[in-house]
């Protein structure tokens, strides 16, 4: 056994060694095997399939470009530390790609994922040490820097069979359509709830189909990869907030069903808010965290200048998490001390 091999064998969670490999490239020496992250990747498959069906094979192209540059960025930092590239970087890259509009230029994809991985993750020391969700840091950066590419050019989805499976992408002269949230904000008639369920509406690559996202999300919950408390509290927060505001006569806020199914809310609450590292670390903190994400999504969509608020809501709560955890722990300690005295 050489020194490198014994190192790989001792590393916790290292996958069984494959001897040889292509051109001497040993996959699990270059990448760190992380079972939960592989499960998240599996769970994104339905949404990815949906993206290809609705918007053509270019969607897969966007995902692959994003993965390639994510791995490259992480590797350039990991090399210095002597660590393998984490599997989590694939999750960040895929989730980031799924939040992009179908006609996003590859340049924008690359800028966002490099910023997200480098400044959202690697400057903190890599996997498990980041404060913010790297995918959302990247998306927020390009969202603010490239507003035209990120918010204007939406496409009507393909329909019927074979849908987008037989096409690359709609051309530049293709019919564009506003997203349901934009329609709502502009006061126009919005898509039917049935279309929001199946996903045949305009929107970002992976966010349109509620059914496919819920299938992936349930798999995450079933395998206990995602914390059910976060998902449930996100949904409850959004439902309560939108019900309260909508039925008390605030016209800027849609009803609870539309709130849940439209935009990136399901993608955000099942896949992004549940990121175990940037989420709150205490149990009570997770309930508050999820609930506030749901509430903030409704508030930002209704009252801020943006049509969609899921990304901002999760990033904001990432910011609030550390201090929230600090006080949750402090209260718990106080209670414990009091119980000990009594």
């Amino acid at each position: 056994m050489t020194a490198r091999e014994s190192d790989a064998a001792e590393r916790p969670g290292a996958a069984p060694e494959e001897s040889g490999g292509l051109f001497g490239f040993r996959f699990w020496e270059f990448f760190r095997y992380q079972k939960p992250m592989v499960r998240v990747l599996t769970a994104t498959l339905p949404a990815m399939g949906g993206a290809v069906y609705f918007f053509g094979w270019r969607a897969l192209g966007v995902v692959l470009v994003s993965i390639a540059f994510a791995v490259l960025t992480e590797w350039s930092f990991c090399r210095k530390r002597g660590e393998p590239v984490s599997t989590a970087v694939f999750v960040s890259a895929v989730l980031y790609a799924l939040t992009l509009p179908p006609r996003v230029p590859y340049m924008v994809v690359i800028v966002g994922i490099v910023v997200g991985i480098a400044f959202g993750k690697e400057v903190f020391g890599g996997f498990a040490r980041n404060v913010f969700n790297p995918a959302l840091v990247g998306r927020c950066f390009v969202f603010i820097c490239f507003p035209v590419e990120m918010t204007v050019q939406w496409l009507a989805p393909y329909s019927g069979l074979p849908g987008g499976f037989a096409r690359w992408a709609r051309g530049a002269d293709a019919l564009t359509r506003a997203t349901p949230l934009r329609d709502f904000q502009a006061g126009e008639s919005v898509a039917a709830l049935g279309d929001l369920l199946t996903g045949s509406v305009a929107g970002s690559l992976g966010e349109t189909s509620a059914v496919l996202l819920v299938i992936g999300g349930l798999y995450l919950l079933y395998t206990k990869t995602a914390d059910w408390r976060i998902v449930v509290s996100c949904l409850v927060g959004a439902v309560l907030m939108s019900t309260a505001l909508h039925y008390s006569g605030v016209t800027a806020v849609p009803g609870p069903m539309f709130t849940l199914l439209s935009g990136g809310f399901l993608l955000g609450s099942f896949f992004m808010a549940t990121d175990p590292i940037s989420a709150a670390q205490t149990g009570t903190g997770r309930w508050i965290y999820g609930f506030l994400i749901g509430a903030l999504v409704v508030i930002i969509r209704g009252f801020a200048g943006w049509p969609e608020g899921t990304m901002f809501a999760i990033l904001l709560m990432n910011t609030f998490n550390p201090i929230m955890d600090h006080y949750v722990r402090e209260v718990q300690q106080m209670r414990k001390a009091r119980a000990g005295v009594g």
């Binding site: 930092f77 210095k80 530390r81 400044f119 959202g120 690697e122 400057v123 903190f124 020391g125 890599g126 040490r129 404060v131 913010f132 840091v137 927020c140 950066f141 603010i144 903030l296 930002i300 801020a304 943006w306 608020g309 990304m311 901002f312 809501a313 990033l315 904001l316 990432n318 910011t319």
Partner: peptide, 25 residues
């Protein structure tokens, strides 16, 4: 485990930047 060039004020500026982006919401 912040890389050496980013330790101290540099990482604090990066964090402030991301916080400012989030507050743009």
């Amino acid at each position: 485990d912040v890389p050496r060039p980013f330790q101290g004020v540099a990482i604090a500026m990066v964090v402030t930047g991301v916080m400012a982006m989030a507050f743009m919401g």
